[in-house]
């Protein structure tokens, strides 16, 4: 049985191809807090979970100041 030639004649419906953002989220296992490696290292030293923070930088990037502010607020709340 011969198959008909299958060169696509009508323009194929364009499926949604996963964007790099979607792929990054998938491959790396979920949505990561937006922070630089240096801030990540700083947060790790202080034992801060960045997932709990709201960033104040562009695109809600978490800054050093955000981490410090968070630590201060936690410490203050424990007093």
């Amino acid at each position: 049985m011969t198959m008909r030639d299958n060169e696509p004649t009508t323009a194929p419906a364009t499926p949604h191809i996963p964007s790099p953002a979607e792929m990054a989220a998938e491959v790396m296992g979920g949505h990561k807090p937006h922070a630089s490696p240096a801030v990540r290292s700083f947060a790790r030293e202080l034992g801060v979970d960045l997932a709990l923070l709201q960033g104040s930088g562009p695109h809600a990037r978490i800054t050093f100041a955000d981490v410090k502010r968070y630590v201060r607020s936690v410490v203050a709340s424990r007093r």
Partner: peptide, 16 residues
């Protein structure tokens, strides 16, 4: 991990 996580976040939040 920290470097890669940081990059992933940039791809996702700001763009490729």
């Amino acid at each position: 991990r920290e470097w890669l996580d940081a990059l992933e976040a940039v791809i996702e939040k700001v763009g490729p």
